[in-house]
Simulated scan of single mutants.
Amino acid sequence: MRALVVLFALAVAAHGADWPMHRGGPQLQGRADMAAPAKPDLAWTFSAGKPIKAGAAIVAGRVFVGDDDGMVHAVEFATGKELWKFKTEASIEATPLVLRDVVYLGSSDGNVYALEAATGKLKWKYETGDKVLGGANYAKNPTGDGEWLLIGSYDTNLHCVDAATGKVVWTHATDNYINGTPALFSTGEIVFGGCDSYIHVLQLIDGKELRQIDSDAYIASSVAIMDGLGYVGNYGNLVLAFDPNGPKGSEVKWKYRDRSFPYFSSAALTADRVIIGGRDKRLHCIDRATGNGVWKFDARGQVDSSPIICGDAIVVGCEDGRLYCVNLADGKERWEYEIGAAVTASPAAADGLVIVGAEDGNLYAFGKPAAPAKP
């Protein structure tokens, strides 16, 4: 077990101020290494020309994002200038994963693509049996060098693929679609929710299922992990906290229910709070230890966007066409920016900018880029 912990630690080494994947890192906690902008100052916009429902990745001065036309765009972080683009065969809703100068992302055409981060040149393509809407995660290869990618598909399988070659390592079948990004526990287990209503816990080495936890309704979002516990919302109007190693039948630690509306948003985590958007037009703050509600923020539309925590504030998009920034402490609004088109994509944040796409076909950057470090 200790070997797996070490391997996991290598895989999740600090990424500095970058935002290299869905929710920022392999435990999908949705926390940025920066404060939220004090005001919604628009630094730049980039026009993709088609709706953007995917989250962005930010690495080494570049921003990577997909759009509804199946185009992958790389733009300059400081200016929003396009650097390259790559066409897939169907829409993209998955957040890219950037690892070792390669961009990995799935498309609704059923393929996972590996592209050179500098040029957009195709390195390899891996075919699943159906569309891929969730982002990839990764872990250190426990049997050798390099990394393995972990990717869910609507073919009902979780796919483990060698990052260097695009060759399949193993697949694990479930009973329905897999929509979210799989997360990784520090002990090396993989965890994800499925549209079969189960939370699945697998071992990394061979994809063997260690446990299924019944959530009572299908799960379209990603599980967030902290301190050995998982947190996820479902379509049964619940947010759950669970312990994958708890005694059988008592893995669920608490259930939070407010109103009878489902959760599509993925949770963001702090040491003591769980923040999640709901289709009840609210952003919910829940006590991480007890599952009791702390506060609720009322938006004007469904909150399918997954919130991110930037210091003492939370930034989240909404289907009412606005980007909101609210206090972490009490949920009071700090500012809002009216984009005028639905924002279902999850924001990304790095080096002073919050970056989010909208269904008007634009990518927006708010804040001021941090000054380059002096040599």
Rank of each mutant, 00 (worst) to 15 (best):
Y104H: 11
R288T: 00
N327A: 04
T270K: 03
L283H: 09
A268F: 04
G321K: 01
A14H: 13
V59A: 08
R31T: 08
D206I: 08
L184P: 00
D304C: 09
Y198M: 12
R288I: 01
R259T: 14
P37E: 02
A241S: 15
A48T: 15
I52F: 12
H172T: 15
P244F: 00
G144K: 12
G367T: 05
H284I: 01
L158N: 11
R279G: 07
E127C: 11
I314Q: 06
I151G: 05
T165A: 06
D320F: 02
G277M: 03
G278T: 07
A114L: 00
L363V: 10
D216M: 14
L229Q: 11
K140Y: 00
L238P: 05
A139T: 01
A36F: 00
Y104L: 11
G70M: 05
S215P: 12
K208M: 14
G293D: 04
Y138T: 10
E189L: 07
P369M: 05
N157F: 10
A348L: 08
V239C: 00
A36I: 03
T181W: 05
L122N: 02
A313H: 02
L328A: 04
I205H: 14
V59W: 06
D243T: 08
K87Q: 15
I58F: 10
G278V: 01
G233R: 02
E93N: 15
S215Y: 07
F261K: 10
V168D: 11
D320R: 00
D258V: 07
D287C: 02
P26D: 11
N292S: 12
D101V: 07
A271E: 11
E116Q: 10
P247L: 10
D227C: 06
R273Y: 01
F366Y: 07
L353V: 05
W44K: 05
D101I: 12
T344R: 13
A43Q: 07
F77V: 09
G228L: 09
R300D: 14
G361V: 08
D33H: 03
A118G: 04
I339A: 09
V252G: 09
D196G: 03
P307V: 03
S265H: 01
P372T: 09
D280T: 11
G246Q: 08
S107G: 08
D162Q: 14
N157T: 14
E333R: 03
E76N: 14
A35G: 09
T270M: 06
N234C: 12
G129Q: 09
K374C: 07
L99W: 00
A271L: 06
Y324N: 07
A183C: 10
G317S: 03
A345W: 00
T171H: 14
D101K: 12
L7F: 13
E319P: 06
A3V: 13
